[in-house]
Nucleic acid binder design. Sequence first.
DNA 1: TGAAAATGTAAAGCGTGCTTGACATTCCTG
DNA 2: CAGGAATGTCAAGCACGCTTTACATTTTCA
Lengths: 62, 62
Amino acid sequence: MKNCIQELRAARKWSQADLAEQLDVSRQTVNALERGRYDPSLPLAFRIARLFGVAIEDVFQP
Amino acid sequence: MKNCIQELRAARKWSQADLAEQLDVSRQTVNALERGRYDPSLPLAFRIARLFGVAIEDVFQP
DNA sequence: TGAAAATGTAAAGCGTGCTTGACATTCCTG
DNA sequence: CAGGAATGTCAAGCACGCTTTACATTTTCA
C-alpha cells in the first residue's frame, strides 16, 4: 500500500518530528510509514488524512 | 472506531460467511469487526469499502 | 567548514489483527 | 417441531503496528 505522506508533509515544510507530534506517534513511526515499511492502523490513517484535510483514499493507494 | 458493515452487508442479504469469502478473511474476523471487537487493518478497510462501493469514511467513523 | 538539525536504522517488547478449530446459541423454514 | 443455517465466542498461535532507546548518516546553514 503506497502513500504520499512525505509529499503532503514536505508541502507544509514540516519535519518528520513535527508530523509525529501532531499525529501523536513516534518519529520512527512517521519515518517507517513514509518509507513504506508498514501500513498504519486504521485510526492512525484517519488522523493522518484529517490532519492534511484530505480523504484517506487521497493519502493511501492500495 | 464505529462501522456500519452489518448494515451494508444486510442490505445485500449476505451472510457473514458470504462477506468473509469476498473479503478473503475468516468468518470470525467479519463477526469481530461487526461487533466492534477490533478495527481492520488499512488494506482490509480498503477491500471492505471497495466491495461496498463506498468511501472508507462512509464505512468507518472514528 | 563545522555544528546542529533532520533523517535512517536497529533491537527488544507490548498489544492487536487475523488465523484455525471447536463448540454453543439463535434463527429460519420445511 | 426438527434440523440446518447463521451467528456468537473462546483459545492458541503468528505477524504486524507502534513504542523506547540508541546510534549512524545525511542535510542544512551560519
